[in-house]
């Protein structure tokens, strides 16, 4: 059969455009948004980190180890890790208030529970380590990125840790899922009443192969949940090299002698 070589032929295999998300990422694949991470931006803090994933922007500062503020909670054997996560009033589509709401408190607690297994708290008796996370722009998957950012800041502060903690979220929507969902993806749900509809966030210690944080809501079957956790772990591994690189860069910068002018 003679072929028309003058004309540009279409590809032999094609996919429906609905498979692609607006920002070009694909559904049902472990496709995290491009991340930018950097350590050491706040000079006053012991350690600090900034993370940007798509439009989600967070920064985290670590202060301490220092003496515990509340004397009655001083632990002679073990240090305390306190976390505080806040949303800037302009971070969400709707304006929030500066006062910490119950959602922020919940996030702070999740963050604390996700980070604590990774920090060698027994090396810091009678002291407390403060982790402050500020969400500058909320474009979905805030908790997951907060975990990554906070562990990076802890490492930057020179706090002894067993491992880094990486976070990853997925949004299950019927049979398909989105890894690292954006704000609209996170809060949208197709009107079709399907069984699996929910969100899942996992905090993972990559070199120890341990899950330090797990949180899900919505409706999911057990199989979907298990598959979701596996997907999140895979997503965390994708972040790992980026985070490692940012850390080595920060260490190198700190080790370098001040440039002579």
């Amino acid at each position: 059969m003679p072929t028309d070589t003058k004309r540009v032929r279409g590809p032999e295999v094609s996919q429906s455009p609905s498979l692609f998300l607006p920002d070009g990422r694909q559904r049902d694949q472990v496709d995290v948004r491009p991340v930018f991470v950097r350590c050491g931006l706040v000079s006053q803090a012991k350690g600090s980190a900034y993370i940007e994933a798509g439009n989600t922007k967070l920064m985290c500062c670590v202060y301490g180890p220092k003496e515990t503020e509340r004397k009655d909670e001083t632990d002679m054997k073990c240090g305390r890790l306190t976390t505080d996560m806040r949303f800037a009033p302009f971070s969400c589509p709707e304006r929030g208030s500066w006062i910490q709401g119950s959602q922020d408190k919940d996030f702070s607690l999740m963050l604390q529970e996700s980070l604590q297994p990774a920090v060698c708290l027994h090396k810091y008796p009678r002291s407390q380590i403060e982790v402050n996370v500020m969400v500058l722009e909320n474009s979905g998957s805030v908790l997951a990125h907060a975990v990554t950012c906070a562990s990076l800041a802890l490492a930057d502060a020179g706090i002894e840790m067993y491992d880094l903690v990486l976070g990853c979220s997925i949004r299950q929507d019927g049979a398909s899922y989105v890894v690292d969902p954006t704000y609209t993806e996170q809060n949208s749900c197709s009107s079709v009443s399907s069984e699996n509809q929910g969100g899942l966030t996992v905090a993972f210690l990559p070199s120890l192969n341990q899950i330090s944080g797990l949180q899900s809501d919505g409706e999911m079957t057990e199989e979907t949940l298990t598959a979701g956790v596996r997907t999140c772990i895979e997503g965390c591994y994708k972040l790992y090299p980026v985070v490692q690189q940012a850390l080595t860069k920060a260490v190198r910068r700190a080790a370098l002698p001040p440039p002579e002018s």
Binding site: E113, E195, L205, I211, L214, Q215, S216, D217, M220, L225
Partner: peptide, 12 residues
Amino acid sequence: TVTCTRKVGGGS
């Protein structure tokens, strides 16, 4: 059907 899961406590 699982509607919520959460890890609680300080371990992994």
